[in-house]
Design a protein around this nucleic acid. Structure first.
Length: 487
RNA sequence: GGCCCCUUCGUCUAAUCGGUGAGGACACCAGCCUUUCAAGCUGGCAGCAGGGGUUCAAAUCCCCUAGGGGUCACCA
């Protein structure tokens, strides 16, 4: 069997979005599962929209997800160049070879002419197709006009027969050749079109399996025809289903976050995103949902990729993220959470400092009850700032009650004495206080929590007290009594 | 519009060669646990797009209809 080589070939015209990431993931999984090679190629033949920024950002997103590549623009390889704009002479050369062989021709039609032609066809209810007019130009006329007119190169498509795509996921898909018109392979700016360039690169890079989104299925016969005319062997194809928005339309900006970067900024973990994306259009065939990347690599196969489009459900992603947030190693979560903490609280922390240790403890307390790293930072504010808002409903419910001031004063007195200031000890003391005052524990805890955190809910109160430290606790109890005139 | 692909709970999906009470997960609801909120546990709600065939037997095979998506670019 030939060596397995797959490629992910984004065009640097935008951030890496969810759909692209999933395609990259499936390529990567297939390569890693089968011991093949993963190649990263940049399809930047759209001169207008491609940019260096997007190029870097796509690479960064892939690295963040852990999708590594064996050959690519940044690390090179034996099959370069891995950026199409660095391979322009090659496309040009092959296109001209096709012209010489009578398989392609120069076309001088202007955009206006073509538009008028299409409009006419539309009115007649015909599909818009290029007439093939320039194919008939005499060699003499062609050479003359090449001198001072801009032109494209069109590929001559067969009029008869059919072209079959053998797709690993979809099976045999046949297209009648007569539906194709003479499409462009070299644009007037001299750059190749996608259909042309990717066929050449896939061949030159010895790609064995082309795994890409289903939107490319209809283009595949064109590419196969080109490959045949160039004498190339065609790779195996696998067209994975699209990812759709909740309203069944194509995923776009108006549906909220669509790029990998946005998810990272929201505080989604790469582990969760990878796990979720793997589940979109693929399943291991057993009742298993939570899988680390190693497990997914083991279980992955293209045969188990489903045919139907999947609707993107952020709630499930969020659930998975919450799961990873509370089960991954604390050190790892701390590392990931730190930027969010720093941004929100303007703190400066370095590893192995006391402050770092404290943050780690805070995260350990908070992580059980949040779904993203951003929420984690939001939920920890009272550990970093003394000046917080008090929950309005909570104030009405817990502070506006007979004897609250007295309770808080008692709590203050009790805590004053506790030594060492540890959660367990604090809990025992407050239990005792409850018995002494003959009130339920909630009568003590709820107002205390509100006074210390401004909130009615959150982590274990005794842990909070211990972590806050005696001084801050006593001060906040006092502040609450004064602020709300509790007696 | 032509061509192509797709169709199992609201959503992601499972159901080896046709025989299942159509399974799991998210979401939602309820209960338990409990100092709050989560988490966890238990239970519940909910689906084979419709219609014809083939067959002793169809979610599964065939046909039709409907619906969704893709593509028909000098974008990829």
């Amino acid at each position: 069997m030939e060596k397995i080589r797959v490629r992910f070939a984004p065009s640097p015209t935008g951030e890496l979005h969810i759909g692209g990431a999933r395609t990259a993931l499936f390529n990567w999984l297939f390569a890693r599962h089968s011991g093949g090679k993963m190649i990263l190629r940049i399809d930047d033949t759209d001169r207008q929209r491609s940019s260096q920024e997007y190029f870097s950002s796509i690479l960064e997103s892939m690295k963040w997800l852990g999708l590594t590549w064996d050959e690519g623009p940044d690390i090179g390889g034996d099959y370069g160049p891995y950026i199409q704009s660095e391979n322009l002479h090659k496309y040009r050369e092959l296109a001209e070879q096709l012209v010489r062989d009578g398989k392609a021709y120069y076309c001088f039609c202007t955009a206006e002419q073509l538009e008028a032609e299409k409009e006419k066809q539309r009115q007649k209810g015909q599909p818009p197709r290029y007439s093939g007019r320039c194919r008939l130009l005499s060699e003499e006329e062609r050479e003359r006009r090449k001198l001072n007119e801009s032109y494209v190169i069109r590929f001559i498509t067969p009029r008869e027969g059919e072209t079959v795509v053998e797709d690993i996921i979809r099976g045999r898909v046949a297209f009648e050749n007569k539906i194709f018109d003479d499409f462009i392979i070299i644009k007037s700016d001299g750059l190749p079109t996608y259909n042309f360039a990717s066929v050449i690169d896939d061949h030159n890079m010895a790609i064995s399996h082309v795994i890409r989104a289903e939107e490319h299925l209809s283009n595949t016969p064109r590419q196969i025809i080109i490959a045949h005319s160039l004498g190339f062997q065609v790779p195996l194809y696998a067209h994975v289903p699209m990812i759709l928005a909740p309203d069944h339309s194509k995923l776009s900006k108006r549906h909220g976050a669509t790029s990998v970067q946005e998810y990272r900024d929201m505080g989604i973990l790469p582990e969760a995103l990878v796990n979720y994306l793997a589940l979109l259009g693929w399943s291991p065939g057993e009742d298993k949902e939570i899988m680390d990347i190693k497990e997914i690599v083991d279980l992955f196969s293209l045969e188990r990729v489903s045919k139907n489009p999947a609707i993107y459900d952020i709630k499930k992603l969020t659930w998975l993220n919450g799961y990873y947030l509370r089960t991954l190693k604390l050190e790892k979560i701390t590392e990931r959470a730190l930027p969010f903490m720093q941004r929100k609280f303007n703190i400066n922390t370095e590893r192995n400092t006391a402050k770092y240790k404290e943050i780690e403890r805070i995260i350990d307390l908070v992580r059980d009850r949040v779904k993203t790293l951003q929420e984690m930072a939001d939920a920890s504010n009272y550990f970093f700032e003394d000046d917080f808002q008090y929950d309005e409903k909570g104030v009405k419910k817990h502070f506006r009650k007979e004897g609250v001031g007295e309770v808080l004063t008692e709590v203050s007195h009790v805590l004053q004495r506790v030594e060492p200031f540890e959660a367990e000890k604090i809990r025992d003391e407050l239990h005792d206080l409850g018995r002494k005052l003959n009130v339920s524990l909630s009568r003590i805890n709820l107002p205390t929590r509100l006074a210390l955190t401004g909130r009615t809910m959150g982590p274990e109160l005794f842990d909070i007290i211990s972590l806050l430290g005696k001084d801050r606790v006593i001060n906040r109890l006092k502040k609450a009594r004064e602020l709300f005139e509790l007696s």
